[in-house]
C-alpha cells in the first residue's frame, strides 16, 4: 500500500445547506466526495510503524528459533536465518519433558473449561430463574470475589491443597481456579433475557427444572458458552503463578512453568528458548485465528480474561 493511494474523505463543509438527509448522504460518502492524499497516508504511516513494533517480537522469536548460535549471536539484524535449524525444536523436547508439559496443559485446560462452564452456567441460571430467600445477598457474595485477584489467595489456597493432599495433582491445579464470578454474572445476564413463556411451556409439559436448564437454557446459551469457554481456555493455557506453586514435579508441570524453568536453566541458548516459546504460543494463536469473533465477543462481554 503506497502512501499515495487515493483515499476518500468525508467533507461535510460542502454539504448543501439545510437538509439533514443531504448531510448524511454526504457523510456516508454518497455525494460530495473529495479526493485527498495527506491525512490518511500519515495515519497509515503511524499505524504501520506501531503495527511493526507489535509484530516485531513475534518475527524475532520465530526467526531466532530457526537460527544456530553462531547466527543469532552475530551482530547485524537479519530476520532470515543463514541456515535453518529445525533441530532447535527437536532439542527442546529432548532437554526437558516438554511433551508431558504439553499434555498436562491440555488436560488442565479441558478440565477448567468444562468445569467453569458447568458451574457458572448453573449458578447463573439459578440467580436468573429461581426465586429464593437470600438471593440478592448470595449474588453480592459472588460478585465481591471479583475484587480478590488470584495472588491474594495464593498462600492460603496452597496451604489448603497441601492439607488436602492435592499438591502435584490435576485436582490441585484445577479446583482452586474454576470459580469465576464473571462467568456467573455473564450467564445470569443471559438467562434473564430468556422468555418466560418458553420456560413455563416446558414446565407445563412436566419438565423438571434440571431438564429445562439442560434442554432449553443451555442450548439457547450456545454463543455465550462458546465465548466464555474460549476465555477460560485463554486464561488456562497462559496461567503461571498458581501452576508454579501447585505442581513442583515434572509429571504435573504445565507449559508456562516448563518454559520458565527451561529459560532459567539455559540462560543464553536463545535458539532453543525461542523454539520453546514458539511451541507454547502456537495453539492459542491457531484458536484465535479460527475463533477470533467468539473470543472478542467474550472479552467485550466480560471485560476481562478469566
Amino acid at each position: 500500500m503506497g502512501p499515495l493511494r487515493m483515499t476518500t474523505r468525508r467533507v461535510p463543509v460542502a454539504a448543501p445547506a439545510g437538509s439533514v438527509a443531504a448531510v448524511r448522504r454526504c457523510l456516508r460518502g454518497g455525494a460530495g466526495l473529495v479526493v485527498r492524499y495527506g491525512p490518511r497516508a500519515g495515519l497509515h504511516a503511524v499505524l504501520l510503524a506501531l503495527a511493526f513494533l507489535y509484530v516485531m517480537p513475534f518475527l524475532w522469536m520465530i526467526s531466532t528459533s530457526l537460527k544456530g548460535p553462531s547466527d543469532y549471536l552475530r551482530s547485524g539484524i537479519s530476520l532470515v536465518p543463514r541456515e535453518i535449524h529445525w533441530d532447535n525444536y527437536i532439542e527442546v523436547f529432548e532437554r526437558v519433558p516438554f511433551a508431558t508439559f504439553y499434555w498436562n496443559t491440555v488436560v488442565v485446560t479441558v478440565m477448567r473449561v468444562v468445569a467453569q462452564i458447568a458451574l457458572a452456567a448453573a449458578a447463573g441460571y439459578a440467580f436468573a430463574r429461581f426465586r429464593f430467600k437470600g438471593r440478592t445477598l448470595l449474588f453480592v457474595a459472588v460478585l465481591v470475589i471479583l475484587m480478590v485477584p488470584p495472588p491474594v489467595t495464593l498462600v492460603p489456597n496452597f496451604i489448603i491443597i497441601r492439607r488436602l493432599g492435592w499438591v502435584n495433582t490435576y485436582t490441585g491445579l484445577v479446583v482452586p481456579t474454576i470459580w469465576s464470578a464473571f462467568g456467573v454474572f455473564l450467564f445470569r445476564q443471559f438467562f434473564l433475557t430468556l422468555p418466560k413463556d418458553l420456560i413455563d411451556a416446558a414446565k407445563l409439559d412436566g419438565c423438571r427444572p434440571w431438564r429445562v436448564f439442560w434442554h432449553i437454557g443451555l442450548p439457547a446459551a450456545r454463543a455465550h458458552i462458546a465465548a466464555f469457554g474460549l476465555l477460560v481456555a485463554l486464561y488456562s493455557w497462559n496461567e503461571f503463578l498458581w501452576s508454579l506453586v501447585a505442581a513442583t514435579d515434572d509429571s504435573r508441570r504445565v507449559i508456562s512453568v516448563g518454559i520458565y524453568l527451561f529459560q532459567s536453566g539455559y540462560r543464553q541458548e536463545w535458539g532453543l528458548m525461542m523454539a520453546a516459546a514458539t511451541i507454547s504460543i502456537v495453539p492459542l494463536l491457531v484458536i484465535f485465528a479460527i475463533a477470533q469473533k467468539h473470543l472478542i465477543r467474550g472479552i467485550t462481554l466480560t471485560g476481562l480474561k478469566g
Binding site: Y54, P57, F58, L234, F240, I259, I281, L284, L285, I287
Partner: peptide, 17 residues
C-alpha cells in the same frame, strides 16, 4: 490483538532476548 493471546511467560522470554 496478538500479544493478548500470547502466553505472558513466553512473551517475557522473547522480550528478555
Amino acid at each position: 490483538f496478538l500479544p493478548l493471546v500470547t502466553m505472558p511467560v513466553a512473551s517475557a522470554i522473547v522480550w528478555r532476548w
